[in-house]
Design a protein around this nucleic acid. Structure first.
Lengths: 225, 225
DNA sequence: ATATTGAGTTCACAATTTGTTAATATGTGA
DNA sequence: TCACATATTAACAAATTGTGAACTCAATAT
């Protein structure tokens, strides 16, 4: 079987690492392992994996720290990072996802679930960068031409406005939390005031002239037609 | 074999504990034991098990009390709690399920049945923790879209209302204590009056227009269709 | 070099929605 | 029936978002 992808597993418990390695190797993935935070960063840089599984609790930098460090580097911008967390530890989930992880898997890990989740992740990775035109009703958004059309009439949007609209329209109906929007459009580390999003939303609504963005108070915004 | 999960057994009869421990250890579970109510609470907090087996009749806080206390803490939100009851004692069943238990097993325990029930429970636990759409009859609750539908007709719920409905509907039939609801939706430290919950419940009932939340006097609320 | 323009942001305040409380009514079980 | 818990209602408080105007900063034009 040909190699489906390269995965880095970082966990200080050898047993866990072995279970995961065994199951994923069997599925055709190439596996690299690390047993502490610093090691994980080293190995990540060396082997440039497609996906990184990070235990939260590790000696010498925990998973969250490792994730932050890696995410700060352009080389790992698109690398999928998955956290391993104790089932109960909810704060880690939140913290993890806020830190730029793509998903988390709860321990104890069931091999079956692990494998299916990893498969799913790779499916997402391989799905070509969806720079594709979105068409919903009389609205058309073309990320290549950087252009939006309402009733075939072009609407000029500023960069941020366009990105925001594209983000929301990419998953119609789904609510994007303000945090999520900030991370997606502005980046993890940029700090902008709370009203900023509102102002851009308003401009989009204004310019498009159609009511396609719904406010979900206390939660975020969603695209609806 | 790798550890499938951690189970806490609380029963004051050493024989019972040993039978259960033996059988579940053989199946690859990690076992923690307690022999009275207070001890059970202690051990639960310390070892954070995935599943707790509680005898109803125990010295120093009975099973129901232990369950109530644990359920009031967010850390045990997703912990599966199973009661051990004497076969005859039907009122315990009722009381138990009303208190937030997920299942009960009748004594005397047949090892075979015990193991299969526990397996089943763990299958449920491992079902991905992802927020997923709840569909019950003509009601649909989508946490991603933050939207509820009755007969395919969207109903607009405020944040708290939605969270509350989602909580109740996530385990249909299970009673949520007022305490539990407070901890889940408002958080440990926030203090709000008792009537607040009622008001939100009422709004949900009103907005949905269907009778799906049942009041359990003196205990809490449960979702029923 | 200086003015102009527009994106992006921030701010203060208005508008609105949501959440909470308190007071009263209603219902239910011992 | 009498307590007690919940339902209901409306008034109030708090939180969140919308809005218009001003400001910063580059890029571009004059």
């Amino acid at each position: 079987m040909n190699v489906k992808g390269k995965i880095l597993i970082a966990d200080d418990e050898p047993d866990i690492v072995e279970i995961i390695r065994y199951n994923l190797t069997k599925e055709g993935y190439e596996i690299v392992t690390a047993n502490n935070g610093d090691d994980a960063i080293q190995k990540a840089k060396l082997s440039q994996p497609d996906l990184i599984i990070l235990d939260i609790m590790m000696p010498r930098k925990n998973g969250v720290e490792v994730c932050e460090i890696l995410r700060a580097q352009p080389a790992f911008k698109d690398t999928v990072i998955v956290f391993l967390t104790a089932l109960s530890d909810e704060s880690s989930h939140v913290k993890g996802l806020e830190t730029g992880a793509d998903d988390y898997i709860s321990k104890p890990v069931s091999p079956k679930i692990l494998v299916s989740r990893i498969h799913a992740m790779f499916r997402r990775i391989n799905k070509e960068p969806e720079e594709k035109v979105i068409k919903i009703d009389n609205l058309e958004i073309d990320p290549v031409k950087f252009e939006a059309k309402v009733d075939s009439k072009a609407v000029v949007l500023a960069k941020k406005e366009f990105e925001l609209l594209y983000l929301l329209a990419s998953k119609p109906g789904r609510v994007f939390l303000r945090n999520e929007i900030l991370n997606q459009i502005w980046g993890n580390d940029v700090i902008v005031g709370d009203r900023t999003i509102d102002v851009h939303i308003r401009k989009i609504r204004q310019k498009l002239g159609i009511d396609c963005i719904t406010t979900v108070k206390g939660v975020g915004y969603k695209f609806t037609m």
